[in-house]
Amino acid sequence: MKPSKLLLGCMCLLLSFSLYAQKEVNKNHSCLKCHAHRTYKYMNEDFGMEIKESMCSNRMIDTLAYQQSNHGMFKCTDCHSPEYETFPHSGNLRMELMYACNDCHAGDPEYAKFHFEAIEEAFYESMHYNRSPDAFTCWSCHNPHTYKTQARIGEKISETVSYDNNICLSCHADVSKYELLTERENINILKSHEWLPNQELHFKNVRCIECHTQLSDSLLVSHVVMPKDSAIRECTSCHSANSHLMASLYRYKSLESRKGSGFLNAVIINDSYVIGANRNKYLNILSVVIFGLVLIGIFTHTIFRIFKSK
């Protein structure tokens, strides 16, 4: 084959790929042309003219985040009724029953490592579910259009922290979502955590769930959010040699890096510094040795002074 033909063949292949990809992106265009924008247009048949209106913000979908999410390859109508194709959407679609995670994931061996069934059980124990069993669902935290397995795929721990904390903050920093679920007065979390020094630093480096959930051996992300009286308050549960964080926040990374280097503290050591938890074995030994030498030196000198003073 001549090189030019090879090139042509390659270009055709590329073109068809990009067309295919284009189609993939556009498969949801019929919904996203309205739901991805602040305004949408529709044809008013009666007047025979196009009308432009604004889309309320909680009906809007971030297309980029959608594509990057776990379910980004889904068609909207895989989860929503195909009847949504028509606009105005029919009123009784509001009554549509949505799938739960485990309608699709339960019992599927492909997802066994995520332990969906165990998570569901943990969720039923959680304070949120028990306070509003009808309204609080998996979707309350797992935004159907953006959720991804950040803790597994995230490069940096700080990104995972902010991703996970934003889940909690979607209600605990936003009354409009919070008040859908309770009659209780809004909780000001900045005030409730005034006892925590360097609050901003902590909220950037440590997840809400570190203190608010029960640790779990089998789950990467513990799902039992406890009532506030059971939240962790002792500094030393993180700031000590057997830091709680090794079993939660740093667990996935440390499991991964242990596979590679066999050095347990490797993750903490590069990504962050938790006073009391970061201990470098070699520096510790070195400092004890140096300190010992100094004491021996002082001791010997003293002995000489005692004997030579006469």
């Binding site: 002792e234 500094c235 030393t236 700031h239 000590s240 040699a241 006073i275 009391g276 201990r279």
Partner: peptide, 20 residues
């Protein structure tokens, strides 16, 4: 006390007090 923080060690000052 902070560097070697350990709630079980009676010779160390408590972490919270140490920080302050």
């Amino acid at each position: 006390s902070m560097q070697y923080s350990n709630p079980e060690n009676p010779f160390l000052i408590s972490f919270e007090l140490s920080v302050q």
